[in-house]
Amino acid sequence: MDYAQVLVAVDDGPAGQTRLEFCRELAIATRSSVIGLAAASHPPSPLGAELGGGLSADLLTAYREAADFELMQAHTAFTLHLSGPDIVSRWIQAHGDPTAFCIRQARFADLIVLGIRNERAPYGAPDPTEVLIGSGRPVLMIPPEPSRSPIGEHALIAWRDGKEARRALAAAMPLLRLASGVTVVTIRSEDEPDQGSEELAELADYLAKHGIVASIVDDSLMHATVGRHLLQEAATHGCGLIVAGGYGHTRLQEWMLGGVTRDLVQESSICLLLAH
């Protein structure tokens, strides 16, 4: 499997520029086409406007003009980074909810590239958690200041057998083949049975069949949470990418992340490839 088509959410600013640089590198390395996406919606109405029956025409016009300017800046940044004879790309934009627009447009993407902990979400950028849970597609989350590139550096696979981890592993194959090294890490609590050496050996053999040589770390949890333990392991190996299942569920109409996924999303300075 390769990434035939990658969808990247674009917004102006240093973090957005970093995402676009990674996408250009990925497009060249995997010969994938790239869809740039941006959407903008105005924030909720001020209390006074709500009591008065809605936003005034002047305020609506100001919001619309500000959104148009932001979309133009995003398009300019995308064109600057992802155009040229070696790049196949196209641009889509909309006024409205960025998260809903991203989820809708992700139907024909092999991979979605988003900013993690993006200060512009939810009005100027998609919410990465909602996209992860709602899109049915793997998501590559880029921190505001990533410690390393997710392309060509060491990669860590956080393995706990289940559909989420399996989907993440399959989705990460193109990046794993580009990695300088791969380490599979499985972490269990002290009272939890280990995954079994046979299963981990089969996983290493499966990766080898895809041309990926991986080392195995089977560890027990001592003091840190599983998420923080994974981050420590990734830092020790100098990783640019963590591949993991993205666990979550709905409660009272809100997306709730599992503890390990929450720790990774909230604390990682390393790029994350997650699948739900």
Rank of each mutant, 00 (worst) to 15 (best):
135 S>T: 08
81 H>P: 03
3 Y>K: 00
79 T>W: 06
231 L>N: 03
28 I>G: 08
133 I>R: 03
55 L>Q: 14
265 V>Y: 02
203 L>P: 04
21 E>M: 09
144 P>V: 07
163 K>H: 14
118 N>Y: 02
191 D>M: 12
1 M>W: 11
268 S>E: 12
9 A>N: 04
118 N>M: 02
155 A>Q: 01
86 D>H: 11
8 V>D: 02
183 T>M: 10
115 G>H: 04
78 F>N: 00
149 S>N: 08
189 S>G: 15
134 G>C: 08
131 V>Y: 07
38 A>S: 13
51 L>N: 11
107 R>C: 08
231 L>T: 02
192 E>G: 01
262 R>Y: 13
276 H>K: 09
127 D>Y: 07
262 R>Q: 14
156 L>W: 06
274 L>N: 04
221 L>D: 12
107 R>W: 10
203 L>D: 06
113 V>C: 02
153 E>Q: 13
63 Y>L: 04
206 Y>V: 09
218 D>C: 11
230 L>Y: 07
157 I>T: 04
186 T>E: 04
44 P>K: 04
123 Y>D: 14
236 T>N: 12
177 R>N: 08
131 V>D: 05
153 E>S: 14
94 A>M: 10
6 V>K: 00
128 P>N: 05
2 D>A: 12
193 P>S: 01
71 L>P: 00
61 T>L: 12
91 W>D: 00
88 V>P: 06
58 D>T: 13
114 L>P: 04
187 I>V: 15
18 T>Q: 12
216 I>W: 00
148 R>W: 14
145 E>W: 11
154 H>R: 08
122 P>Q: 09
119 E>C: 06
221 L>N: 14
103 I>V: 15
34 V>Q: 00
211 G>Q: 03
178 L>M: 13
94 A>H: 09
124 G>Y: 05
39 A>M: 00
193 P>L: 00
151 I>N: 02
155 A>E: 01
35 I>F: 07
115 G>T: 05
83 S>D: 11
106 A>N: 05
124 G>L: 11
261 T>M: 02
142 I>Y: 06
276 H>Y: 11
169 L>S: 11
240 G>C: 02
41 S>E: 15
266 Q>S: 11
119 E>F: 09
248 G>S: 09
94 A>C: 10
79 T>P: 04
214 A>H: 03
238 G>C: 05
230 L>A: 04
162 G>P: 05
84 G>K: 03
35 I>Q: 07
82 L>P: 01
243 V>G: 00
87 I>H: 00
112 I>K: 03
162 G>H: 04
177 R>C: 10
134 G>Q: 09
14 P>M: 01
243 V>E: 00
67 A>M: 10
120 R>T: 11
68 D>Y: 07
31 R>C: 12
226 V>L: 15
191 D>P: 07
131 V>W: 04
46 P>H: 08
207 L>I: 03
257 L>G: 03
139 V>Q: 04
219 D>V: 13
272 L>C: 08
213 V>W: 10
113 V>T: 01
136 G>V: 05
186 T>Q: 05
109 A>I: 01
69 F>N: 10
70 E>H: 09
212 I>W: 06
43 P>C: 01
179 A>T: 08
228 R>W: 15
179 A>S: 15
261 T>K: 04
137 R>L: 04
152 G>N: 01
40 A>W: 15
87 I>S: 00
100 A>W: 02
113 V>E: 01
212 I>H: 06
